[in-house]
């Protein structure tokens, strides 16, 4: 296995890991397998694409690529705006649908609802933007040699860097800030958290906002290095669940490590000639972890 497959695996793994951070946080605090997370990734990417297009139309010359990257300032600013928008979309969905089901206390009804909402969200994207793939930029990018037999494009390096930054930021936020501590307390035991005066409803709102904006960041990254499609997030979903469960639900470092392992396993599969079955490899990883250690690498929650 040469270095290029390793680098591809790490790159894929970091996009999976970035998506899985949002999934694992929402999973542990909201306590249900949220199938809409994949579609938040797609919506985030399309939000960013639309805002970047608008900005490019308003501010002359803003869309000029920032050398050496293929994207201009518009995409950077649009990503920040789109993260807020996706967070609000997730929050709106909670207010309309999940909040009412949560009151009834049925976690599995929420999974059903999220499965349905996921399909509706995806189909709505397909209706508005058509299934045709699009791109942030049609600029050609040349891969620069990093080491012997290893080449990466500047965009790919940016994706790796941003994953690292967001991972550290999320980890510090959850472990050091007051609201982060409140979130972890809620994830451990919501009733007890309420007793000690934590506003659980506020924690839930912040979790949706955070989950949505992280999904959007992951969508923009995937859009940059692969392409933007209405099904991009949904196709990633199985890998995200595998990464989150592998790392242990609720663990941010676990999600990133899980993402990297799933990404490396997939590129190992591609190297071994199973490129057509790449997505099934995350399924195998998932089955393996469920058989061997259902709590995941860093998980403590009862299975």
């Amino acid at each position: 296995m040469n270095l290029q497959y390793l680098a591809d695996g790490l790159l894929l793994g970091s996009t999976i890991g970035l998506g899985a951070i949002g999934l694992t946080i929402t999973y542990s605090i909201l306590r249900f397998a949220n199938f809409t997370h994949g579609d938040m990734i797609s919506w985030g990417a399309y939000f960013a694409l639309t805002v970047a297009g608008l900005l490019g139309g308003i501010v002359a010359g803003a869309a000029v690529p920032l050398a050496p990257f293929s994207f201009g300032w518009t995409v950077v600013v649009a990503t920040l705006i789109a993260m807020a928008l996706t967070g609000l979309l997730a929050l709106a969905l909670d207010q309309l649908l999940f909040r009412r089901l949560r009151r009834r206390g049925s976690a599995i009804a929420m999974v059903i609802a999220s499965f349905g909402a996921s399909l509706a969200l995806r189909s709505l994207l397909e209706f508005v933007f058509t299934p045709q793939p699009t791109y942030f930029s049609t600029e050609l990018q040349f891969a620069v040699p990093i080491a012997r037999g290893l080449r990466l494009t500047p965009d790919q390096i940016a994706v790796l860097g941003l994953t690292l930054v967001l991972f550290v930021a999320c980890h510090l936020w959850l472990t050091r800030s007051q609201i982060g501590r409140a979130m972890r307390a809620t994830s451990e035991n919501p009733s007890l958290a309420r007793v000690v005066g934590i506003d659980v409803d506020r924690v839930v709102r912040i979790t949706w906002l955070l989950g949505g904006s992280l999904a959007c960041a992951s969508g923009v990254m995937t859009g940059l290095v692969v392409q933007i499609r209405p099904y991009m997030g949904f196709d990633l979903l199985l890998a995200l669940f595998a990464a989150a469960i592998l790392g242990g639900i609720g663990s941010v470092p676990g999600a990133v490590l899980g993402g990297l392992i799933v990404g490396l396993a997939e590129s190992l599969g591609v190297w071994a000639g199973a490129a057509d079955y790449r997505e099934a490899i995350s399924f195998l990883v998932l089955i393996a972890i469920l058989l061997v250690r259902p709590t995941g690498l860093f998980g403590s929650r009862a299975r």
Partner: peptide
């Protein structure tokens, strides 16, 4: 396993 793991696995088998 937990009920929602069954959901994720059946989703995986369909894929």
């Amino acid at each position: 396993l937990r009920a929602d793991y069954l959901a994720i696995t059946t989703f995986g088998i369909a894929v």
